[in-house]
Design a binder for these strands. Structure first.
Lengths: 150, 150
DNA sequence: TGCTCAACTGGAATCATTCCAGATTACGGT
DNA sequence: ACCGTAATCTGGAATGATTCCAGTTGAGCA
């Protein structure tokens, strides 16, 4: 068993590796986000239920929190849209969000090592992370012209 | 840069200049945000009521939207915190948000003309704006050390 | 000095997410 | 293998920010 590739790592191993209990809901949730990058809690709930049958809303939110805390998932919260989750690559990438439909795309930091990610005046804050979000229109919404609110 | 004045411009003129009707609630709302930068809708509601007496929740949300659309205010929506409004200066500055209490500080873009504000791969999106948010702890929460008291 | 449409009122509704209290279950001992 | 005990999960109710709706009021043009 030289199952190396972290990308292909089995959910069970990821969980154990993070010191978390291996439960059906957690495994299913990891599968769900693996299949649909940038899934909402609701998407995950759907997938998990499709896979396991009855699962409470709470269980999914709990799991998503646990996985996020354990760094197995990363949560993105675009203003005006429900939170989304992605399997984190560890790299610090950013996101393009469609102002119209909320679609999200990954964006690598243009400049390798974030230049403007160190505030000029931090007001005494201890800055831990910087987050960049690009707002615009996705190909689909651009083509279908209208529909965009405002 | 040379166009300073706006800070001192009377709310009435700002409204008229933007082609908006001059109403008590709007004027009071502009005052409110002027006095307390980064005010929440609730803060504004409070100030406006203190100034005018009875005012509906709806009126304030309507006004904040109208003013935001007219570019007299800028809305900031830090993940996990209610939206906040600031009197926009036209410059594209960013924000430091306290992970613990939600306090917000303004941060000028370190590099004048946003370098990493052009995504390397835009996935076909038409990017309109880029938004940078720094997350950390404000001086107060840092000192009081423990228990993030929301 | 009226008229008209944008603004406002008040109350109910929505949506994502969280709180609660009790039932279930993974997994480190013995 | 078997138990005990947190850690999890269930189901339902609650929260909080914001929006929808239908009717009333008032700013600003004629």
């Amino acid at each position: 068993m030289s199952s190396t590739a972290p990308a292909a790592a089995a959910p069970e191993d990821l969980l154990r590796g993070a010191g978390l209990r291996v439960t059906a809901v957690r495994v299913a949730a990891l599968h769900a986000v693996g299949h649909k990058q940038h899934a909402t809690a609701d998407d995950v709930l759907g997938s998990v239920r499709a896979e396991l049958g009855t699962v409470s809303v709470q269980a999914v939110y709990d799991v998503l929190h646990a996985l996020t805390d354990a760094r197995l998932l990363r949560r993105i919260e675009p203003a005006g849209h429900p939170a989304r989750y992605e399997r984190r690559t560890g790299d610090n990438h950013h996101h393009v969000v469609c102002r119209s439909c909320g679609a999200i795309g990954d964006v690598d930091c243009t400049v390798g090592h974030a230049p403007c990610l160190t505030p000029s005046d931090d007001h005494g804050f201890v800055v831990e992370t910087a987050e960049v979000t690009y707002w615009g229109l996705c190909p689909g919404c651009r083509t279908s012209g209208s529909a965009a609110r405002i």
